[in-house]
Simulated scan of single mutants.
Amino acid sequence: MIRLGTRASALATTQSGWVADRLREAHGVEVELVEISTEGDRSSAPLAQIGGTGVFVAAVREALLDGTVDLAVHSLKDLPTTPADGLTLAAVPQREDPRDVLIARDGLTLGELPRGARVGTGSPRRISQLNALGLGIEITGLRGNVDTRIRKVTSGDLDGIVLARAGLLRLGRADEATEILDPIQMLPAPGQGALACECRADDAATTALLAVLDDPDTRAAVTAERALLNTLEAGCSAPVGALADVVWGDDGDELWLRAVVGDLSGAPVIRRSAVGAPAEAAALGRRLAQEMLADGADQLMGSATPA
Rank of each mutant, 00 (worst) to 15 (best):
E138T: 15
T38V: 02
E62Q: 15
T82A: 14
D21A: 14
A289M: 00
L243C: 02
S303M: 08
I180V: 15
G136S: 05
L243Q: 07
S37D: 14
T13K: 10
R115C: 00
G249Y: 02
L33K: 05
M301H: 14
T231E: 14
T223D: 08
P278W: 08
R99P: 12
E138I: 12
D157M: 09
E39R: 09
L210E: 02
N145W: 10
V222F: 07
G120M: 03
V101Y: 09
D182R: 08
A220M: 10
G172W: 06
L135V: 04
G296I: 04
L87F: 04
G136D: 05
G107P: 00
T206P: 04
D245S: 13
A90F: 02
D203P: 05
T6W: 01
L142H: 06
D295Y: 04
V260F: 02
T82G: 02
R149I: 08
D250E: 14
S9W: 01
D175V: 13
L255F: 13
G160N: 05
V269M: 10
D217Y: 10
D298Q: 12
V261N: 12
S265I: 00
A164S: 09
A194E: 13
A90W: 01
S128C: 10
L255W: 14
R286Q: 15
E32H: 07
V246P: 07
N230P: 00
T140V: 15
G134C: 09
L87R: 01
A166Y: 08
G160D: 00
M186L: 15
E112H: 02
I137Y: 11
A201R: 05
R226Y: 05
V153E: 07
T305F: 11
G160Y: 00
L169C: 11
L76N: 11
A10T: 10
P93V: 08
G241M: 05
D100Y: 15
G40R: 08
E179C: 03
G249L: 00
L300M: 05
V101L: 14
P216L: 09
G144D: 14
S123D: 13
P268S: 02
V19M: 05
G276H: 03
D100K: 13
V212S: 13
M292C: 08
G193R: 10
L71I: 06
R143H: 13
K152E: 12
G276T: 08
I161K: 12
A238H: 02
L293V: 07
P183F: 12
R3I: 11
R173W: 06
A45W: 01
A84F: 11
G141Y: 15
T109G: 11
I36L: 13
M301F: 11
L213H: 07
D202Y: 02
T6R: 04
G111S: 06
A289N: 01
N230L: 06
D106Q: 13
L4G: 10
E32V: 13
E254H: 14
G134K: 03
A279G: 05
A234T: 13
D21T: 08
T231L: 12
L87I: 08
G52C: 03
A90N: 07
V29Y: 13
V247F: 00
G144N: 10
P190S: 05
T206C: 09
A59S: 11
T140W: 01
